[in-house]
Write a protein that binds this DNA or RNA. Structure first.
Length: 264
DNA sequence: ATCGGTACCTGCACGC
DNA sequence: TGCGTGCAGGTACCGA
C-alpha cells in the first residue's frame, strides 16, 4: 500500500502519540514480528513513553524513553489505526494511557520490530528523495546498468519511492521505465530529479493515494489517486498526447507509461 | 558487487 | 455458486 507520501501522511496523523505512555502491548502474529519474541516485546514496551514518531523512507520509527525503538513497515496492506475495533487481520494492539493503537495487515508483508538501538536496516537506506541534492542524484545514476524503473524502486538508491510514484515521476520527466539508468544524464537527469520532488510533494499534500484501502491513522483516505497520469491507466489516453498508456513488466512490477511521451 | 527472478500472504475482479 | 487465473502500494533471498 504505502509509499513515501502515504507513510508521511500516516506519521503526521500519529503526531498525537508523542508523549503518550504504552500501558500494555499484545502481539498475535509471529510472521509480522520477523523472529521477534512477542512476550519480550510486550515486556519491553510496557510502561515506556513514546518520545517521537519519525519516517525514514517507508519505515516508521517510534522512539521510546528507554532509548529503544519500535520499527514499523506497512508492507503492501499494513495500517496503523488510532482506536477502532480489532479485526480479522489485527496483529498488534498497543494500549496507551490515552487511546489505543492497532496494527492491521491482511497480507502480512509488513513488520513490527523492537530494537534496543537505531535499526541497522534503516541506517542502510539511501537518501530521502525530497532532500537529495541534484548533483548527488545525478552521481548516483552514473555507472548503474539497471533500468531506471528498477533503480527508483531500490531503497538503497533512494528511500521511499514505490511503484506508483516511480511510474508517475518517469512520466512527468518523459523517460521510459526501461531506459538504462546510466544513460540518464544532464537535462534528463535534472528533469527526473525535479519530477520526483514534484510528484512526492503533491502526493503528500493530497494525503497520499488510496488505491484500494489505504487510510491514515484516523481512517481518512488520500485523494492523489485522482491525479495519477499513467499508474493503472493501461489502455486509456495519455493526458498529454492521447496515445494509449501501455503496461510492461520491469523487475516483475507493472510499469505504466506513454510510448510517445517517454523516451529511452 | 549487481542484477533479475522467485517467494512470501490474502483478497478481489474477472471469465467460464 | 464456485473455481481457476491474474493482479495488487512491499522486501528478502537466491543464484548467475
Amino acid at each position: 500500500m504505502p509509499e513515501l507520501p502515504e507513510v508521511e501522511t500516516v506519521v503526521r496523523s500519529l503526531a498525537r502519540l508523542k508523549g503518550r505512555r504504552i500501558v500494555s502491548a499484545e502481539f498475535t502474529c509471529l510472521r509480522v514480528l520477523r523472529g521477534g519474541d512477542p512476550d519480550h516485546m510486550a515486556a519491553s514496551l510496557a510502561g515506556r513513553k513514546i518520545t517521537g514518531i519519525e519516517r525514514y523512507g517507508k519505515f516508521i520509527l517510534a522512539s521510546l524513553d528507554s532509548g529503544a525503538y519500535l520499527m514499523i513497515h506497512l508492507g503492501m496492506t499494513g495500517k496503523l489505526l488510532l482506536g477502532g475495533p480489532a479485526g480479522k487481520h489485527t496483529h498488534a494492539v498497543l494500549t496507551l494511557d490515552r487511546g489505543v493503537l492497532l496494527y492491521d495487515d491482511s497480507r502480512q508483508f509488513g513488520c513490527i520490530e523492537y530494537h534496543e538501538r537505531f535499526p541497522a536496516r534503516v541506517a542502510r537506506l539511501g537518501p530521502e528523495p525530497l532532500r537529495i541534492a541534484f548533483e548527488d542524484f545525478a552521481a548516483g545514476l552514473r555507472g548503474r546498468k539497471t533500468r531506471i524503473k528498477a533503480l527508483l524502486l531500490n531503497q538503497m538508491f533512494l528511500r521511499g519511492i514505490g511503484n506508483i510514484y516511480a511510474d508517475e515521476a518517469l512520466f512527468r520527466a518523459g523517460i521510459h521505465p526501461e531506459a538504462s539508468a546510466s544513460k540518464i544524464r544532464g537535462e534528463r537527469a535534472h528533469r527526473l530529479h525535479g519530477a520526483i520532488v514534484e510528484v512526492l510533494t503533491e502526493a503528500i499534500e493530497a494525503g497520499g493515494s488510496s488505491i484500494s484501502d489505504y487510510v491514515d491513522a484516523q481512517g481518512r483516505k488520500g485523494f492523489f489517486q485522482f491525479s495519477h497520469r499513467v499508474y493503472q491507466r493501461t489502455g486509456e489516453p495519455c493526458v498529454a498526447c492521447g496515445s494509449k498508456v501501455r503496461r510492461v513488466l520491469v523487475a516483475q512490477r507493472s510499469s505504466h507509461f506513454c510510448p510517445k511521451c517517454q523516451k529511452r
